[in-house]
Amino acid sequence: MLQRIQTIYLLLAAGVSAALPVFLPYGIDSDGVELFAKEDFFLLGLFAGSAVLSFIAIFLFKNRQLQFVLGRINILLNFILLGVFVYWSLTVSGETKVSEKGIGMIIPIISIVLLVMANKAIKKDENLVKSVDRLR
């Protein structure tokens, strides 16, 4: 049902993945220009994919197993995004792309935390339904 707590977590995760990369820079290049995800098609695609997966999972409340699997896939996608940010931040020595780290690099961490809390609530609902079915 749409009034469950996991819906709020998934909606927040979708909002974080969709809105924050547009406004928060993930780094500053060697010229002092802030780098945003909206300027990089690869990052924008990963963030948009994460937001779409979260939004789709909201409406799969009747199929909790698929909702849980989509949450896991979304967590994996955010770990890949976090890995890209870590890789770019560790290759700073040649001043290739990112000279300084920005606040936007923590967006995948926030999204992962929200998705883990949503998956925990989905699992709790699934266990509740199974326990009620056992009593019939």
Rank of each mutant, 00 (worst) to 15 (best):
Y26T: 02
F59D: 05
D29S: 04
F42S: 13
L82K: 06
F79H: 03
Q6G: 07
G27R: 02
L82H: 08
G27S: 03
L11D: 09
A48C: 06
R64N: 05
G102L: 04
W88F: 09
R4A: 10
A19C: 15
S131N: 13
I73K: 00
S50C: 15
S17Q: 05
K97A: 03
G45E: 13
K97H: 07
L44H: 15
V113S: 05
F47Y: 15
E34W: 02
S131Q: 12
F36G: 01
D29H: 00
A19N: 15
L70W: 04
A48Q: 07
P108V: 00
Y26G: 08
L53C: 01
F42R: 03
F42G: 08
V132F: 14
L114P: 12
V92P: 01
Y87K: 06
Q65E: 06
W88D: 07
A57R: 15
L77N: 12
Q6S: 14
M105Y: 00
G71K: 14
G32M: 01
K124C: 00
V86W: 12
A118M: 13
G49I: 09
L114V: 05
N74K: 03
L77G: 04
V113C: 04
K38Y: 15
A121V: 14
L12V: 12
L135M: 10
L70C: 00
D125G: 11
F47R: 09
V69E: 00
P21H: 04
S54I: 01
I58E: 07
A14I: 03
F79N: 12
E34G: 00
K38N: 15
F61K: 11
L82E: 11
L115A: 13
Y87T: 11
D31F: 04
L12T: 08
V86C: 12
K38F: 14
P21V: 12
V69M: 09
V16M: 06
L76D: 11
I109Q: 01
G83L: 01
F42Y: 11
D40Q: 03
L135T: 15
V116T: 07
G83A: 10
K38A: 11
L66F: 13
V129T: 07
V52F: 12
G49W: 05
S89I: 06
L135V: 14
E126I: 09
I109V: 15
E100S: 02
K101H: 00
I109R: 00
